[in-house]
Amino acid sequence: MQRNLSVLLILAMVASLQTGLSAEPRIGALTIPTGTAPGPVTGDVALSPADPVWTYAVPVEVGLHRTPSLYSGGLFDNGRKPRTTLRLLGLPDNRIALQLTWEDSTPHSSESLASLTDRGADHIYKTRTSAPERFPDAVCVMVPQRRGPHERYPSLMMGDPENPVDLYFWKEGRGFEHLTGSGRGTVAAAGADAPPGQVVVSPSGDGWQATWILPDIAPATPLAFAVWDGDDQQRDGLKYFSLWYEVGP
């Protein structure tokens, strides 16, 4: 109960500080320093997490919060919050490379998804659903479509009608999707003309590591993150989420 209350308090705080529902301007901006490598960095280099170029990016701890269970009823907050680190690297042409590393004790929860291969013509069964009760791990970075500094941040719930967002989403077993949103329940595939992004995700130590390359990121653009632990039946709004961070100098 107390946990639920604290989650609600966090949500109330988020609403007043960060969604623009309050009349106050945003306060308490969280910034991520942008690392600069000595020479120009190509996208391919930035997408390989082990490349020494990443030593120029300063790791920042990102605070994640757990959403309350809104309609599922059966799921509750177990109090765990994955430790999450973020690094940011400036790239030419207004692009940035972002690297999020987060704990997940079972980063291979949906291995069965990878085994969804056609069993061949000798078998009666076609590609089959092997784990209807399992949910994939997932990660997303949310960026307002209007890049640059913001007086008020978009709603953390997938943006709002005045402040639509780009969602650079990755889901285990299904890969990368570029989505857009303008409020809860509005998430849809981005149009073909949307600025393209890239992400590479791989298991790392005791969790996952995702590296994105995001286009058109002006200084002070807000970014927010979410991760889903499939083993905890997280999906949809049931997830760990961060407040807004700003791309710092």
């Binding site: 309609y71 599922s72 009823g73 059966g74 069964y125 659903t129 784990a131 209807p132 009760e133 039946q233």
Partner: peptide, 17 residues
């Protein structure tokens, strides 16, 4: 809405040949 669990693959029966 009343809470519920999700049926597992075993609840549907793992297909055999």
């Amino acid at each position: 809405l009343r809470p519920s669990s999700l049926p597992t693959a075993e609840d549907y029966g793992v297909p055999f040949e």
